[in-house]
Computed example of a mutant assay.
Amino acid sequence: MRVVSICPSNTEIVAYLGKTDVLVGVDNFSDWPKEVEELPKLGPDLSIDMDKVAELKPDLILASLSVPGMEKNIAALKERGLPHIILNPNSLDEIARDIQTVGEALGDPDLGEDKANTFRSQIARYRTRAQRRQTTPRLYWEWWPKPIFTPGKANWLTEISQLAGACNIFATEDVANFQTTWDQVKKRDPDHVCMVWVGVKEEKMRPELVKKRPGWNEMKAIKTGNIHVMEESLYCRPSPRLLEGLQKLDKILGS
């Protein structure tokens, strides 16, 4: 079977299933696991080169709507009549269902179900552990600095926060992505600032500039030095690797 993935989270689901050998091409941002680095690159996930995709003669293309703007990829796939499925998870349960969906699409539904159940079991263990936490740290997740975007209630990072025994300060907003302001963040006064700028490597993020935002030196997170530069690849992609991110968050919070 010849499979193309045009989104990093889809590539990571294939890897979670142990099926990277079926991949014949991926988007430019698919960087995990290491073996996919050698595959043909088909362009950034928001502007896939469909001519290159068609040249690979795939049996299946794993498409996505996880980032605004990916709709044009779907339109191009439909226009060309290329075989594809679309994944668009916002919650951990939806990621589990997508693991099953991809397993079925790759011709191994039993594997998909088994790996999805493993994923759910890991989540259940963290949920039990979170219930034993004595305090509930309040987290501000910064997805983009200017304008500020942060995950809302309908996003996996709200669940990841809860599974670490914490809470997302913008879980009050019933959307997946919420545009906010420096002032609103300051008013909500988080215990921790988690920097996970989408598409930006950790070494390029500047926490010292975040600390200089007007009035932020009065926030608990800044006073206590709890500002964390974190791997966007472990928190910004709806894939099973979120559990690796959860494990790291758990250590940061001292669970």
Rank of each mutant, 00 (worst) to 15 (best):
C7Q: 09
C7M: 10
S9D: 09
T11I: 05
E12D: 05
V14S: 04
L17E: 08
G18T: 10
T20C: 09
L23I: 13
G25L: 04
F29H: 07
K34E: 07
K34L: 13
G43K: 01
D45M: 13
D49C: 12
D51L: 13
K52N: 07
V53I: 07
V53D: 02
V53N: 02
A63H: 05
G69C: 02
G69N: 06
G81M: 15
G81P: 14
L82P: 13
I85M: 13
L87H: 07
I95Q: 03
G103P: 03
L106D: 06
T118W: 02
R120E: 01
S121Y: 06
Q122Y: 12
R125D: 08
Y126K: 01
Y126G: 00
T128D: 07
T128K: 13
A130Y: 00
A130P: 04
T135K: 12
T135M: 07
L139S: 13
W141K: 06
W141G: 06
W143P: 04
T150G: 13
A154W: 09
W156H: 12
L157P: 02
T158W: 02
S161E: 08
C167L: 14
I169V: 15
D174Y: 08
T180Y: 05
D183C: 14
D183G: 15
D191T: 07
M195E: 10
K201E: 15
E202S: 13
K212A: 15
R213T: 09
R213M: 08
T224H: 09
G225I: 12
N226L: 13
E232C: 10
S233Q: 12
R241D: 07
L242P: 03
G245E: 03
Q247D: 14
I252N: 03
L253N: 10
S255W: 02
